[in-house]
Design a protein around this nucleic acid. Structure first.
Lengths: 174, 174
DNA sequence: GATAGTAACTATGATAATCATAGTGACAAG
DNA sequence: CTTGTCACTATGATTATCATAGTTACTATC
């Protein structure tokens, strides 16, 4: 693509965030970070993206102040990525995306009855469904107060992806 | 780009919506549709995208059931696009994006003091800021109950874009 | 009734982002 | 001293995107 018009100086707030969020890879990487998976290889495996793309997008996320790179050991220097406050504040966006998909993007029964990902309000134990306000206690939902529970099907899919990168980086094509 | 892995059959809801929403053009076109601008030329002008891209994305949005194409006159047949219920339900996502941008994406004073786009709760008249629940009456905010008011700067920007496409499709390069 | 305008697109070629695959450097473990 | 792990970078083929121009069909103006 030729250099597309930059939207980071529009006055429209949707335009500004579209510049960052209007990108499949960014969204998937953010998902991984919200899941607590900050290691490079884990992101590559779970997001299903090439390492080069992940590398480029992580740099962008760090440059934007949405994520930060932190060493978790020296001697082999190893880094992981985590969300900053600015990044954590994107939870509403991802949560809204998940809510929409749960309501519209699955065939009946495809998830085995319930949602693909359940969210439980920690403070009162209620399953919040896709609401923005807890149907049990009426509190406004926020990132820290929610516990995500993937359905069996989703859990299996994640496990398959995570292990696919392990066995000494298999070299059989296909 | 080579054919990237399709995510519409993942079990992860964020992955599924990322397949549609992880695209700058889709987000910008949705913004226009939420603004009530459904005419092709208006979308091209205001979103700042080429007609070919807009054409392709509108087809996708229609195919996904998010938008629909409706004739608003015959004899020259003319069509406009509008959101379906499934599309209108994406409001939460766009609203969350705007909220994040209002909080993080502007330099101090860049918008002239207030937010770039104000939202007023129709039922009680309160300026809701970037909240998901009305700070005035406590009601959960939804698309129909909100009235958007662009700031003077944003309004000027939109007017400039809308008129740029008019004068008989100017042909001076630049 | 010829010219100009409006609206919704489609056609074309240059440019650049993305993918799959392989490779690198630094260290640890067997 | 070979194998393994982790966080990346390098390469080349493929394809989406952009800018620009063209098409079709009808209306409005001169």
């Amino acid at each position: 693509m030729p250099k597309r018009a930059d939207l980071s100086d529009t006055f429209c707030p949707v335009g500004r965030s579209a510049e960052l969020l209007g990108d499949r890879a960014v969204l998937l990487i953010l998902r991984e970070l919200f899941f607590g998976r900050g290691r490079f290889e884990a992101i590559v495996a779970n997001a299903g993206l090439g390492p080069q793309l992940v590398s480029a997008r992580l740099k962008r996320l760090v440059a934007e102040g949405v994520a930060e790179r932190q060493a978790y050991q020296d001697h082999p220097p190893r880094y992981e990525y985590r969300l900053t406050a600015k990044g954590r504040d994107l939870f509403d966006v991802l949560y809204a995306m998940r809510g929409w998909a749960e309501r519209w993007a699955y065939e009946a029964g495809e998830t085995g009855g319930g949602p693909a990902m359940r969210y439980i309000h920690r403070t009162c134990g209620t399953d919040v469904g896709t609401a923005t306000v807890c149907p049990g206690c009426g509190e406004v939902l926020r990132y820290g107060a929610l516990k995500g529970e993937p359905s069996p099907a989703l859990r299996a899919e994640q496990a398959a992806k995570a292990s696919a990168g392990h066995p000494s980086r298999r070299r059989e094509g296909q």
